[in-house]
Write a protein that binds this DNA or RNA. Structure first.
Lengths: 235, 235
DNA sequence: AAACTGTATTTGGTATACCAAGCAAAAATC
DNA sequence: GATTTTTGCTTGGTATACCAAATACAGTTT
């Protein structure tokens, strides 16, 4: 495990991040990438050993992830990767939508022209990749698009809270992004959002973002329905 | 310190909450009540000894509060109670407003009639106490009013996130609630919000909440200006 | 054969001991 | 006398050792 970064000669004392934070980052990435699948146990001793750290900082990392809602901990039970139900995801997406609507409005005031151009460029890149079989790439740009809008508000609290919801929704949104139809509709939504940003029209941006995320809820409903169907098929 | 609860004979094994959580609750309350004032250091060893616990769970509690934004921790420095600037508070309130606007909309769908009546009763109680010299009581009902609206949505994520922003804004909102004029205006806003809830009119509720919280920002601007003035007067 | 109980193992929770880095104060040198 | 360096004390960060509770398995008893 390469958590302990080498101190280079040039930077004898680098601004050490807490080990627990680094661990949280590693585990978060593994969860988002699905290497740690929802419902899976994360035994403390075993995981700590695998990462080459002791239980204390591992625990700190797990607590961070618990606060983010990615991991659930209960007494005398191994921490477990969260596996939200549809209604939970629905709740999360409603909040996410409210956050992004606010972000869209603030962006109209706060975003620089460069930032808006950058967001527009992301949109163009997605359009170019909409029929790309490599879904991961498409999806990552999609997420970056939303993040960029939020980042342009320069509101640290909003950015942080949005990021947390982003993490919790990552997997399910990834699953729903596999549907071609959903991607096509998303492109239309994104186009309108970019247009609104260019015009710095708060109402348009915010209402289009709402439409976009409400649509995402419907896509996710389908994903859950499919999963349910395939589950009962194997019974 | 009474953190270790006595096991009664009737309840030999009660559902123990993590010690760190309890510590976070204690410290949070002390911070909100101002017993731990903003900017104050919270040395780990000393505080742990004062609470009669060891550093590990105290640290866990501090990490919770750090995640909530109530405490700031940096390497080789004592944790310190957060002391947000006006622009930070402004950022926080914008998010809080978006969350409560969403809550208002959802409440129109999800709140039971009883819950709306209860919220209306809180409002009446505030109106009755608006000229009460005991500001603490008035303020607590004010906070409970907003919490009740959010709670009626039955959206756990929304409730949790809102609560965190609530904590971070507690002190400054308490300070701004001291102004009589602000309280009068708040009563008018609240009345319209309750009216909207009774009609289950999403647009009215959400827009009135927005007006109410945007007004709060202005009140807080005044508080910061006064503080700044009194500070330069003592120079 | 089934059910219940007891024991052993595994889990997370907590305390403590150790380590490294930072800051401040004091002493020494220029 | 002022400045710089060194040392020690205080801080948080990490590892480890210990404890209590829960669970699973096995043995015994009905």
């Amino acid at each position: 495990m390469a958590l302990k970064q080498e101190n280079t000669i040039d930077l004898p004392s680098l601004p050490r991040q807490r080990l627990g934070e680094q661990i949280a980052d590693v585990l978060r990435e593994q969860i988002l990438l699905g290497q740690l699948s929802p419902g899976k146990n994360i035994p403390e001793r075993e995981t700590a050993a695998a990462l080459g750290v002791s239980r204390t900082p591992l625990r700190e990392g797990l607590l961070v992830l618990e606060a983010e809602g990615l991991v659930e901990m209960s007494p005398s039970k191994s921490p477990v990767v969260a596996n939200p139900s549809f209604v939970e995801v629905n709740h999360l997406l409603l909040v996410q939508s409210a956050l992004e609507e606010l972000a869209g409005e603030c962006a109209c005031d706060e975003a620089t022209q460069d930032e808006i151009d950058e967001i527009g460029a992301m949109h163009q890149m997605m359009v170019a990749n909409v029929q790309e079989p490599d879904q991961i790439k498409f999806f990552q740009i999609d997420m970056a698009f939303h993040e960029a809008i939020v980042a342009s508000t320069k509101n640290p609290s909003l950015i942080k809270t949005h990021k947390q919801y982003h993490s919790r929704l990552w997997r399910v949104r990834f699953l729903s992004a596999r549907h071609r139809e959903a991607r096509d509709k998303a492109m239309v939504d994104h186009g309108r959002i970019v247009e609104g940003l260019r015009l710095r029209d708060k109402d348009q941006v915010s209402s289009e973002i709402r439409i976009h995320l409400r649509r995402a809820i419907e896509n996710i409903r389908i994903v859950f329905a499919e999963e349910e169907a395939s589950k009962s098929a194997t019974d």
